[in-house]
């Protein structure tokens, strides 16, 4: 994995959808024709801007940034209340919603065109970067 923030696309099925391709200012994402093709990311071109993360209707794009000190940052789309604030300690979860331990909220922002969807960046040990894909909602008790 490259040592800077890049997109990770988890879009496993051939569904008719290409806003990620349209959103990318670097032409780093290719869906092509027909639009049911799965997106392909050119990691060299990706600048980690997050526009595709906010644009993806399936909330299926994340960003991962592996740092030098065994730490990593994972960015994911978030559409629940209450919103996590930078500095908050939160519980990171994997794709199944299972707890991976605590993480720190580094940033929260809304790129252009997000229309309500927030991007949240959390910091956690690099070993968890391939697993962590969200945080526990405060109201969720399982």
């Amino acid at each position: 994995m490259s040592r800077r923030r890049i997109a990770v696309i988890e879009c496993p099925e051939e569904i008719p959808c290409n806003p990620c391709e349209t959103a990318c200012p670097q032409d780093a994402i290719k869906v092509g024709q027909p639009i049911t093709h799965r997106p392909h990311l050119d990691a060299q071109r990706c600048m980690g801007c997050g526009l595709c993360v906010a644009a993806c209707p399936g909330l299926a794009i994340f960003m991962v940034d592996i740092k030098d000190n065994d730490q990593a940052e994972v960015t994911f789309p978030y559409e629940f209340l209450p919103l996590p604030e930078p500095g908050d300690t939160v519980t990171a979860v994997n794709r199944e919603g299972i707890s991976l331990g605590t993480a720190q909220v580094k940033a929260r922002w809304q790129p252009k065109g997000a229309d309500g969807t927030y991007l949240v960046t959390i910091a956690l040990p690099a070993a968890l970067a391939a697993e962590a894909r969200g945080i526990r909602r405060p109201s969720c008790d399982n």
Binding site: E10, C11, G58, L59, F80, L81, G97, R137, C140
Partner: peptide, 30 residues
């Protein structure tokens, strides 16, 4: 999103007929 609790989704088929990306959103949410 509206603040209700969803205790689970049951599906009679052995697989989901909906898109996996939609399933992934609620799985991540627990």
């Amino acid at each position: 999103q509206a603040g209700a609790e969803v205790v689970g989704v049951v599906e009679a088929l052995p697989y989901l007929s909906g898109y996996q990306v939609h399933a992934a959103k609620i799985k991540r949410a627990g």
